[in-house]
Write a protein that binds this DNA or RNA. Structure first.
Lengths: 249, 249
DNA sequence: CGCAGCCTTGAACTCCGTCAACTTCCGTGG
DNA sequence: CCACGGAAGTTGACGGAGTTCAAGGCTGCG
């Protein structure tokens, strides 16, 4: 289904996100919204892009939850990022011809695909837009670095707590979470694949966290009961999310 | 010591690198080379930038070897990238105000610092330059992802082999390596810090690799003796380095 | 109401970390 | 030229965090 970005109600989420990075002049935002897009419905588990492909479009998430991942020879999977509505997980394909990883829907999702050519034109016509989108890819890289540190150097307990902290912050920024409670859209297997653990061990650690009174967790909601202890256990310092930078030039 | 980029013989390495990404029109390259820079000599171990700082310049590596790292609460260190001459490890600080990690010299090094303001002007005056530098930061992110997969999902043997493969490719691209032999500028402790291991274990694994006839390694040189087996053990697929993309628009 | 995907549990195992010594290498200065 | 000291590499014994394998229980969707 082909339409324009401005025809989709979800364009507001994208503009709000970009504006939170750096104020976007009206004409630049308008040029972006004029872009033609194709809306797609995705089953849970469906691939948006595959390693080795050479896409000619990027994908805006409208609804659902999406991850970037690599497959390991022995069959394992490493998830490298989660993406929520308003994100463009494959913005990089604008500059890197070949996909070095895959992207898949973790929940039933809806996306808008944007062809590279017109997108490139709009971006290079506006230094502000260029800055904002470049910066967005840099924040992704910063999150990659934080995850590397977690996977490489933290205990399973800290890693899991860290991921939950990050999810809380992300959902709160998107207006989808209460104070310390947020919807859980991923499985324990997903958590394991993101943190370099097994689902068996994730399960045991989650039980530890529950029995220590730090966490309430069921299939739909997570609630962090003791933010200070949780945050300390997680060694969570949100600097790497670069949200305070919003006002930077 | 303040001078211009064009006055340093090492500017050729930078231009060659950028040209290998996308052909740089003469005037754009000239504008870049006209930038004023300050040359710095660094002792081994000296920090170039520290977590939480808000630098107002970026750093071009002229000579030596540099790494990006984070410090973990318990005193551990996670190295997230190695950078060789021609790289600009903190290009991101152009868009991300606060450093989310530190940068340090692993060997005695020489750098040229470039103030953000004039650099920004040159970049936004040239879509090609913007593309090339943006792309460079995206390749960094791609390497981060590959490392995440390695740390999260590969055995210590594979991880170490993978890192050695990557170093070989990098040095060969820089013209600093023979067929399968390259200079080793990092210690076993550095390798451990990059891969989420301990130096003790790195040492034992290196001995395994040597005794299996896969590797010759001393303090100054490494030589991969059986590239095919080594590459397979490492699960090494150089797609993520995005070198074949050189010709992409 | 049935089934598939997810969660949970237990026992055995192993890769890698920890601790603590010892050796080798190399740059520096006497 | 050698002696020294510090950093890097090496070795062994031991312990533990996390994996593996296998089975059983729950739950939400069609």
């Amino acid at each position: 289904m082909t339409t324009r970005l401005s025809d989709l109600p979800e364009h507001e989420r994208l503009i709000a996100k970009l504006n939170s990075i750096s104020t976007l002049p009206q004409p630049d935002a308008a040029a972006l919204l004029r872009l033609p897009v194709t809306v797609r419905e995705l089953q849970r588990g469906a691939d948006i892009a595959r390693q080795q492909e050479r896409p000619s479009h990027s994908t805006l998430i409208l609804e659902g939850l999406v991850c970037r991942y690599k497959t390991v020879p022995d069959g394992g999977r490493q998830i490298m990022a989660f993406h929520i509505p308003g994100d463009i997980p494959d913005l990089q394909s604008l500059h890197l011809r070949t996909m070095d990883h895959s992207i898949a829907a973790l929940r039933p999702s809806r996306t808008a695909t944007i062809a590279h050519e017109p997108l490139r034109e709009v971006i290079y016509g506006s230094p502000t837009l260029c800055h904002v989108l470049w910066r967005d890819t840099l924040v992704d890289a910063a999150i990659h670095r934080e995850w590397m540190m977690g996977i490489g150097r933290l205990s399973a307990h800290s890693r899991i707590a860290h991921l939950l902290c990050e999810l809380l912050v992300k959902y709160r920024a998107a207006g989808l979470a209460d104070e310390h409670q947020f919807p859980v859209l991923i499985t324990q297997t997903d958590i394991a694949d993101a943190l370099g653990l097994t689902s068996v061990h994730v399960n045991r650690v989650l039980q530890d966290l529950r029995s220590e009174g730090l966490l309430e967790l069921d299939r739909s909601q997570a609630k962090i009961l003791n933010w200070d202890r949780f945050r300390e256990l997680a060694a969570f310092d949100p600097t790497y999310l670069h949200v305070e930078d919003s006002i930077a030039a």
